Deep mutational scan, measured.
Amino acid sequence: MFKRLMMVALLVIAPLSAATAADQTNPYKLMDEAAQKTFDRLKNEQPQIRANPDYLRTIVDQELLPYVQVKYAGALVLGQYYKSATPAQREAYFAAFREYLKQAYGQALAMYHGQTYQIAPEQPLGDKTIVPIRVTIIDPNGRPPVRLDFQWRKNSQTGNWQAYDMIAEGVSMITTKQNEWGTLLRTKGIDGLTAQLKSISQQKITLEEKK
């Protein structure tokens, strides 16, 4: 169930391209415009997507990853294993993690069937560096609404905000991946996880038929 919630949630996290980005210092504006741009692209490019579902990787690479804190999220997933990894191991892992996100997020976007969304009203940021933004996803086919909290983090150097995690039903996506990959990290280390991520990233994206 959580895996499905995570995939549905990713439908609204794909941010804007650099040329049309919203105010990078306001995570609420980023979330709002990102959702609108993403849904528009999914709707307008269905012919290309249906002809070649792996085209979704391109959308992810162009529109999402430049505005997601990939390395920060990847380091959180590694936890204690990050500090013990060599620079070469980290570089290989982050490259594999990025390719994994292209496949995983692309597969999530393949679930698009006309969903709509509501974003919580903007709250004062103050001096906060981590801000959760509640998004409610509404399914046109009558499924119950899904309420999610996207975690946005302020870059201490640039002042810009980027998304790095999502919490559904009190469970963090980062925590879920830590639990899912924990045994592999304990037995085969970061190299074993890197190899698995490379394998997963090679899987073809498949479209979910409308139910």
Rank of each mutant, 00 (worst) to 15 (best):
K3A: 01
R4Y: 15
M7L: 10
M7P: 00
M7H: 01
V8S: 04
L10F: 10
L10K: 01
V12I: 10
P15S: 14
P15L: 05
A18Y: 15
A19F: 03
A22R: 07
A22S: 12
T25I: 09
N26Y: 07
P27H: 05
E33S: 04
A35W: 09
F39K: 02
F39Q: 01
F39Y: 02
F39P: 01
P47E: 07
Q48L: 11
A51P: 08
N52Q: 12
N52H: 12
N52G: 05
P53F: 11
Y55S: 09
T58W: 08
I59F: 02
I59H: 02
V60P: 02
V60A: 12
Q62S: 12
Q62H: 11
P66Q: 09
Y67L: 02
V70I: 07
V70H: 11
K71R: 10
G74E: 01
G74N: 00
G74I: 00
L76S: 03
V77E: 11
L78R: 02
Q80F: 06
Q80M: 09
Y81H: 12
K83L: 04
S84M: 09
A85G: 13
P87G: 11
A88D: 13
A88N: 13
Q89M: 07
Q89T: 09
A92M: 13
Y93F: 07
F94T: 06
F94K: 12
A95C: 09
A95D: 10
A96R: 06
R98F: 08
E99R: 06
Y100L: 11
Y100C: 14
K102T: 15
Q103C: 12
Q103I: 15
A104W: 12
G106Q: 05
L109K: 13
A110N: 15
M111S: 03
G114P: 05
G114R: 07
Q115T: 02
T116Y: 15
Q118G: 13
I119H: 11
A120Y: 14
P121S: 14
Q123H: 07
P124D: 12
P124K: 12
L125A: 00
G126T: 12
D127F: 14
D127R: 12
K128H: 08
T129P: 13
T129E: 13
I130Q: 01
I130S: 01
V131Y: 11
V131L: 09
P132T: 08
V135F: 00
T136V: 11
T136R: 11
I138A: 00
D139R: 14
P140N: 09
N141I: 10
N141R: 07
N141L: 05
G142H: 08
R143H: 04
R143L: 03
R143G: 05
P145K: 04
P145V: 07
D149K: 03
D149P: 03
F150K: 05
Q151N: 02
W152I: 00
W152D: 00
W152S: 02
R153S: 11
R153N: 02
N155V: 00
S156D: 00
Q157Y: 12
T158Y: 06
G159H: 14
G159R: 13
N160A: 00
N160S: 10
N160T: 12
W161Q: 00
A163C: 02
A163S: 00
A163L: 10
D165I: 00
D165G: 00
I167F: 02
A168I: 00
E169N: 03
S172N: 06
S172D: 03
S172T: 11
S172K: 00
M173H: 08
I174Q: 09
I174T: 13
T175F: 07
T176H: 03
K177C: 07
K177I: 11
Q178I: 09
E180Q: 04
W181Y: 11
W181H: 15
G182H: 06
T183H: 05
L185C: 08
L185N: 09
R186H: 02
D191Q: 09
G192N: 12
L193H: 10
T194E: 05
S199F: 13
I200T: 11
I200D: 12
S201P: 15
T206V: 13
T206M: 12
L207S: 15
E208C: 11
E208K: 07
E208L: 12
E208R: 15
K210H: 12
K211N: 04
